[in-house]
Simulated assay, not measured.
Amino acid sequence: MVLLTIKTVQRVSLFVAFGGLVTTFITTFLPLWKTMNSELNEMENWYEGLWHTCIFTEEVGLQCKAFESLLTLPPVTLVSRILMCVSIASGFLGVLAAFFGLEGVEVGAGRERLKRNLLILGGVLILVSGMTTLAPVSLIAYVMVLEFWDEGLPDVMPRWEYGEAMFSAWFSGLLLVIGGSFLFVAVCMGDHQAKQQRKISCYNHTLQHQTLGRQNYSKTEIL
């Protein structure tokens, strides 16, 4: 329990959140959200992300093409792209705010109320970032499951399956949620410590007054 100090919890939380933010940023632009392999041509593998569609062949290698227009995007892909961009922006602002709220950072030194508010703001923004990362990947996964088991499609027609980037997005979203949540734990630990210090200070102040009172009473008796 000695290692579980407020400063340690703050820094570990921020480190976890930053790792989730970096992973989210990389995952957003990876073309590996969906993967598909046709039984008719096993030499071809198709990949699709939020920004590109790619095909891999042994002869040519990997070739990618960006989506030509926003109007041609499926609604799920468009919504997911927007949510991932919101996640990156809110996560960056949250990590920045939480960094300036850390103990030991000289910016705002001596202004504990300001640092506490920065930690709370950072925690809220990081949680928003985590939720807006988990939402699109879960939505895409749900739609893919519906399409995979759609009985109206012919059995020979290939279906999209989960790509590596989807698991990466789930992982990064969980990291952001954990990091943001533990920032609130650090704030609660700081509030508890400040409350204990106020109690000790009040007790010492009362004890000091009682001691002075007894000394004055003793002096009066001697006189």
Rank of each mutant, 00 (worst) to 15 (best):
L3P: 13
L3F: 07
L4E: 06
I6C: 02
V9W: 06
Q10F: 05
V12T: 00
L14S: 01
A17C: 09
A17W: 01
F18E: 02
G19F: 02
L21A: 08
V22H: 00
T23C: 09
F25Y: 10
T27Y: 05
T27W: 06
L30R: 07
L30K: 04
P31R: 04
P31Q: 02
L32P: 03
W33S: 08
K34Y: 11
N37G: 04
E39H: 07
E42H: 08
M43H: 12
E44W: 03
E48R: 12
E48M: 11
E48A: 11
H52K: 14
H52Q: 14
T53Q: 14
I55W: 10
I55Q: 15
F56W: 06
F56L: 13
F56H: 13
T57E: 13
E58N: 14
E59L: 06
Q63M: 14
Q63W: 11
Q63C: 10
C64S: 09
K65C: 01
A66I: 11
S69W: 03
S69C: 04
L70Y: 14
L70T: 13
T72Y: 07
P75D: 14
P75E: 14
L78A: 15
V79T: 02
S80T: 11
I82T: 13
L83T: 09
L83C: 04
L83Y: 03
L83H: 06
M84N: 09
C85W: 03
V86C: 09
V86T: 05
S87L: 12
A89Y: 06
G91E: 03
G91Q: 03
L93A: 13
G94T: 08
G94A: 07
V95Q: 08
V95R: 03
L96G: 03
A97R: 07
A97D: 07
A98Q: 05
L102A: 05
E103F: 00
E103K: 05
G104T: 01
V105W: 00
A109K: 05
G110R: 07
E112G: 02
E112W: 02
L114P: 00
L119G: 00
I120K: 11
G123K: 05
I126N: 12
S129M: 03
M131S: 12
T133Q: 03
L134F: 14
A135C: 15
A135M: 15
P136Q: 06
V137D: 03
I140W: 00
V145F: 00
V145Y: 07
L146F: 08
L146M: 14
F148S: 01
D150R: 08
G152Q: 07
G152F: 10
L153D: 08
D155H: 01
M157Q: 12
P158F: 04
E164R: 07
A165Q: 04
M166P: 00
W170Q: 04
F171V: 02
F171I: 10
L174F: 08
L175W: 03
L176D: 10
V177A: 11
G179A: 01
G179M: 03
F182L: 12
F182A: 08
F184Q: 05
V185R: 15
C188M: 10
C188K: 13
A194H: 07
Q197E: 15
Q197F: 08
R198L: 10
K199T: 04
Y203M: 15
H205G: 00
T206L: 11
H209K: 14
Q210R: 09
L212W: 02
L212E: 13
N216R: 11
Y217S: 06
S218Y: 05
T220S: 10
E221G: 01
I222D: 14
